[in-house]
Design a protein around this nucleic acid. Structure first.
Lengths: 214, 214
DNA sequence: CACCATACTGAACAAACGTTCAGTCCGCGC
DNA sequence: GCGCGGACTGAACGTTTGTTCAGTATGGTG
């Protein structure tokens, strides 16, 4: 019954960040109360103020945690994440689905981070702007590298082309719930991503539209 | 000073829906209080309960209003909104950018509806699921029609292809703020959409990737 | 003209919110 | 073994939230 008191280095702090990340991702930070977070972390609401000063401070700490996770996923690898590469299992060329592939490979299955990322991008959060800008840089670089290697056609408007490809990639994360519900294919699972990527690669290589009616 | 009382048919009702639509779109419904809405509509907070029973009732009314606007935009035309057609101004073929084009043509410039749509789709709102499913139907139909007319290559996976095209289209709305900020091209303006569509059409017809290094 | 339904308000409500504060517990350096 | 500092709590604070309610004004109908 008695609460455990400890001078151990901030166990509650990590629990709060983890609980807040999950709840913010699932319901949004506005719809999540400090009491909800504290209850999930099995800790007193006042501990939020003790460690972070305010609810907003907790939000900042969560943002920093997420940024650190992205960084640990290997930011440098993101550049090559968009490239087409040989798929080991079946020997066919398959489009590594960019950032989605990166997230899927590097994150545990039930991770709240994709959903949190969705909210960051939706809510006009400065942290979201920063991530978008950094990833767009990676997309630009990857496209340029592929052009150089003769793997991509040069576009007349490289800036738009890089944004187009990256935004399409992000859309899969943002709308994956709708996609899974309406089509039965969930591109955030391994099998779903494989099926999705196959058709995307086909569209990107052989095209979608015809110039002249056949 | 004295408030105007009238038995006129619910002027305050419309004002409330309009104010709520704008505030919900800009800040999210959770972050918008009944008092904020009433203040913007220049009306008493209690009027929300009188007309809609609760804040949630207002939200439902706003959803219905938005659905009605979409319907009035011409749901039937949505089917052909994805098709490639002759552009009158410069005589070139241009991809009518699907739902985005439809919204841009049919809505007044500063309309809160695109932003509201963004929130519907990203917040897991049931109203968002419905819109997504209905539009995906339109996308499927349009793609099939284009295949029939020889304007589109047949995909091995038509279900994924239809979703892919539609999701890419929606991504432009969902991320337009990020796109505009990071690239300087805002695809929700006329000029920005033209530049964006030109490159998208190029990508969709001539492809993005090469099968073999050149 | 009297009546009633309806649009609408101002003051108040309980509940939930973020935050404050005095105080308890305990490992670690002295 | 003493005390300092940091982790942590429980109860309370004032504010804001969604909602209730009694009441006023007014146009349309008998």
């Amino acid at each position: 019954m008695a609460a455990e008191h400890s001078a151990a280095p901030a166990a509650g702090r990590d629990a709060l960040v983890a609980a807040a990340l999950r709840l913010f991702a699932d319901h949004g930070s506005d719809a999540t109360s400090v009491r909800d977070i504290a209850a999930k972390a099995e800790v007193s609401p006042a501990l939020v103020m003790h460690h972070f000063g305010s609810k907003a401070g907790l939000k900042t700490a969560v943002d920093e945690h997420v940024a650190a996770v992205f960084a640990s996923l290997g930011e440098a690898e993101a550049v090559e994440a968009l490239t087409v590469r040989e798929h080991e299992h079946d020997g066919t060329n398959v489009l590594s689905a960019g950032f989605v592939q990166l997230l899927l490979d590097g994150l545990p299955p039930g991770s709240p981070i994709p959903a949190y990322l969705r909210r960051l991008l939706l809510e006009g959060d400065p942290a979201g702007h920063e991530i978008f800008a950094r990833w767009l840089d990676a997309s630009r670089s990857a496209l340029k590298a592929m052009e150089g290697a003769g793997l991509a056609r040069a576009s007349a408007d490289p800036e738009v082309r890089a944004a187009f490809l990256m935004v399409n990639d992000l859309a899969m994360i943002l709308l994956h719930d709708h996609i899974a519900r309406a089509t039965g294919v969930d591109p955030l699972t391994h099998d779903g991503l494989h099926r999705w990527s196959a058709d995307v690669l086909d569209a990107y290589t052989d095209g979608v539209f015809r110039k002249e009616p056949a």
